[in-house]
Amino acid sequence: FDIYVVTADYLPLGAEQDAITLREGQYVEVLDAAHPLRWLVRTKPTKSSPSRQGWVSPAYLDRRL
Rank of each mutant, 00 (worst) to 15 (best):
S49I: 11
R23H: 12
D32N: 11
V30P: 00
A19M: 10
A59D: 13
A33F: 10
Y27V: 13
S49L: 11
G54N: 02
P12F: 06
H35Y: 08
L37S: 12
A34C: 08
R38I: 06
L13D: 15
P50E: 09
P50I: 07
T21S: 14
V30Y: 01
L40F: 10
G54C: 06
V6W: 01
I3P: 03
G54F: 10
V41P: 00
V6S: 02
E29S: 05
V6C: 07
Y4G: 01
T46Y: 10
P58T: 05
K44M: 15
V28H: 00
D32V: 08
V28M: 01
P36T: 06
W55M: 04
K47C: 09
K44A: 11
P45G: 12
P12H: 07
S49M: 12
A33S: 13
V28N: 00
S57Q: 05
Q17C: 07
P36V: 06
Y4E: 00
E29L: 10
L22P: 00
P50N: 06
Q17N: 13
R64V: 15
G25E: 01
S57R: 03
V41L: 01
E24G: 07
A8N: 08
V5P: 01
L22C: 02
E16T: 09
R38T: 05
K47W: 11
L31S: 01
R23G: 05
L11P: 15
G54W: 05
L40Q: 03
L61P: 00
V56Y: 01
S49R: 09
P50R: 05
T46V: 06
V41K: 01
V5G: 02
L61F: 03
A15T: 15
V5D: 01
P36L: 05
A34R: 15
I20T: 03
G54S: 03
L31N: 00
D32Q: 07
L11G: 08
D2E: 13
S51Y: 06
L65A: 13
P58D: 01
S57C: 06
R38M: 11
A59K: 12
P36F: 05
V56F: 03
Q26S: 07
T46N: 09
W55L: 03
K44P: 11
F1N: 10
D18Y: 09
P58G: 02
S51T: 09
V6P: 00
R38Y: 09
A15V: 12
R52Q: 14
T43H: 04
R42L: 04
L22R: 00
Y27G: 03
D18L: 06
G14I: 13
S57G: 04
G25W: 02
A8Y: 07
E16D: 13
P58L: 02
I3G: 04
V30L: 09
A59W: 08
L13E: 14
F1H: 11
Y4F: 10
R63P: 10
S48L: 12
A15K: 04
F1K: 09
I20W: 08
Q26C: 05
P58A: 06
A8I: 08
R52H: 10
D2A: 14
Q17T: 13
S48M: 12
G54M: 09
Q53L: 10
A8V: 09
A33M: 14
L22K: 00
A15R: 02
P50A: 08
D2V: 11
P58N: 03
Q26R: 03
W39T: 00
S57P: 14
L37N: 13
R38A: 06
L11S: 12
S51F: 06
Y60F: 12
D2W: 14
